[in-house]
């Protein structure tokens, strides 16, 4: 706690220098490599990156659900409302999971129990954390279903009787049943249709407001980021390579990787425009380059990029980038993108 100044409000989530490794027989997979992240109360941070960037591992680390072995949280701190989660016992974590922090996953089918009625699955969480009787928990479970737009009487149905969008609503109902302060959403709408995605995002926005909840939105979709996030962290090979407000990231892009992401998206305005994908593949996290991890795919790579890891350069108080192209002097200009 001493690390916070008394004037600044305590953020809901503050991660410092998080390092997570998976130690396998084939070598050490460096999933998260010194990640810093901060979410103020009621704010939503978009954690954007591609497969293997370490987004999900970061989410799991917050809940201390990184499979161990082979996963090891090697270094860093994760503070939830000022308390270091990495110091908690397993018993204390059980009380935090589902109560103070909830997580929803991409595929609603695999996160629901196929042989249990959905209202039972919601009531389970409520009974455990709120210490209500089973009948009271069931009643609240049905309220939760109504809240996410499913008639309460459908609670007696099983997951396979619901459509994908409704299943994800059930998952949201479970996650929010105990009004958590932090919701980690791991690609919550990726498996859904656009019109259903629009409904679910709308629902999440309404509930976020209602519960004054902070959110960590893990996604690869920059369109969703615009829709629901206040701040964005662009993640690559286990580090945040650029971070800022929507305005910073979308209109004052600095990192070549962020730029590459934008160029990879089909442009709705100009359908003839050729996509400019980022060349190459994500580096193997068990064998990361010694310098900047993005360097082998970067069009702007310089000599120093191959050998030295770049540090943070701040453009504004919030907006920073980790890239050798920038220094205090030139961070005001956009040196990339022709």
């Amino acid at each position: 706690m001493s690390e916070h100044t008394t004037t600044a409000p305590i953020p809901t989530l503050e991660i410092k220098n998080l390092v997570v490794e998976y130690r396998t027989e084939d070598g050490i997979v460096h999933a998260v490599n010194g990640l810093d992240l901060r979410i103020e109360k009621g704010k939503t941070l978009g954690l954007v990156g591609e497969t293997g960037a370490g987004k999900t591992t970061t989410g799991l680390a917050i809940l201390r659900l990184v499979a161990q072995p082979p996963g090891v949280i090697v270094d860093g701190s994760i503070h939830l409302n000022g308390e270091n989660l990495l110091m908690k016992s397993e018993k204390e974590m059980e009380k935090i999971r589902g109560k103070q922090v909830s997580m929803i996953f991409q595929d609603p089918m695999t996160s629901l129990n196929p042989v249990t009625r959905v209202e039972d699955q919601i009531a389970e969480v409520i009974e455990l954390h709120e210490h209500l009787s089973w009948n009271e928990s069931l009643a609240k479970a049905r309220d939760m279903l109504e809240l996410v737009g499913i008639p309460g009487e459908r609670g007696v149905d099983y997951p396979h009787q619901f459509s994908g969008g409704m299943k994800q609503r059930v998952v949201i109902a479970i996650a929010l049943a105990c009004s958590p302060q932090l919701l980690i959403s791991d690609e919550p709408t990726t498996a859904l249709d656009v019109t259903i995605q629009a409904q679910v995002l709308q629902l999440m926005k309404n509930l976020r407001e209602k519960y004054q909840m902070s959110m960590l939105m893990i996604t690869h979709d920059l369109g969703i980021v615009v829709e629901i996030c206040d701040l964005v962290s662009i993640m690559y090979a286990g580090r945040v390579v650029e971070h800022g407000s929507l305005e910073d990231i979308f209109n004052n892009t600095r990192h070549p990787y962020t730029e590459g992401l934008f160029n990879s998206l089909p442009n709705l305005e100009d359908r003839k425009a050729k996509l400019k994908p980022i060349k190459g593949l994500m580096p193997d996290p068990s064998n990361l380059p010694p310098g900047c991890a993005f360097c082998p795919r970067c069009d702007y790579a310089m000599e120093i990029c191959h050998t030295d890891k770049p540090g943070k350069v701040y453009r504004t108080e919030d907006h920073f980038v980790e890239c050798h192209l920038y220094s205090e002097q030139n961070i005001g200009e956009k040196v990339i993108g022709k």
Partner: peptide, 20 residues
């Protein structure tokens, strides 16, 4: 309903009721 990855244009979203 397409979430457009741009800040400059806010679309009027038609949110459909119900499902297929």
């Amino acid at each position: 309903a397409i979430p457009a990855p741009t800040l400059n244009k806010k679309m009027d979203r038609i949110i459909l009721k119900g499902e297929i």
